[in-house]
Design a binder for these strands. Structure first.
Lengths: 145, 145
DNA sequence: ATGGATGCAAACTGTTTGCACTACT
DNA sequence: AGTAGTGCAAACAGTTTGCATCCAT
């Protein structure tokens, strides 16, 4: 049994979803997810757009935004709002879920803490709600040594 | 010894700050903080502006935004971004600090959990950073009974 | 062939900025 | 009197929308 690469699996998930929903398998959708999974870190809509234009793809901002929305709904991409009025995105399939520390110099530290899950569990019970996701950012600065 | 009302204390803090920094004690600044502390829940810049116009104050959006920024920096007001592209504000002096659960129907539940503090402490030690504040939102929906 | 998806540009929305005027110190 | 702060409107930036066209089915 062969291990599939992440991008292969991701495309398969997209494929399945499009078939199931009767949506079209346009080349743009695959080009965009391909590009997204080539990014190492966070990116914004315009960075994605520019990079695709530079690589001679023919895409529009509208399609970028449409596709990002689709991929976020499939949880293949995660959306962040670190600063105001600028959504950042991040590939999120096959990677460990994590939260972020945003430093003054715009450096971003990723971390994972199980206590956030236990807070979630407490809240679900306490308020009789189903929690679907969360957004957690700590803001700070490096200690001078 | 007499107990001061919250709005009195808040105005005194603003007063002290303005004196210390040599900034002017304009009537707009006091009118705005007065208005803010009359709101029971979260509000956005435009709600604040509209309410003040309705009450026949003469203020501009520029001053609203300037003053909100000032008050946030003094930690007399807290700024949230529940949805994109819309900052919400909330009075924050003399009230217990808390985080939020945002439900699908836009209902907002406030909660307080000490584990978030302990996560903060862990992170400060682990990454040698000083964390100044955080933003935590859970998103979910009410359970059907 | 048909209508879902795209590209393009214009519209939109919350916020910021420039500038002339006002009023606090 | 001098200048920080204001009101106003125009500018701005990221995102959304309307519409003609295209192309996956």
């Amino acid at each position: 049994m062969e291990k599939k690469s992440i991008i292969e699996e991701v495309k398969k998930i997209l494929d399945k979803h499009l078939e199931l929903k009767g949506q079209r398998k346009t080349p743009e959708r695959y080009a965009i997810i391909n590009e997204i999974y080539s990014f190492r870190h966070h990116f914004d809509a315009d960075e994605l757009y520019s990079q695709m234009i530079k690589k001679k793809y023919r895409v529009s901002r509208a399609t970028i935004y449409n596709t990002l929305e689709l991929l976020v709904s499939l949880e293949l991409v995660t959306r962040h709002v670190f600063k105001d009025n600028l959504a950042k995105y991040e590939k999120s399939f096959g990677f460990m879920q994590h939260d972020h520390i945003i430093l003054d110099n715009d450096e971003i530290i990723e971390f994972c803490d199980p206590r956030i899950q236990s807070i979630k569990n407490t809240l679900e019970e306490m308020f009789d709600v189903k929690i679907k996701n969360h957004s957690l950012y700590f803001f700070g600065e490096k200690n001078k040594k």
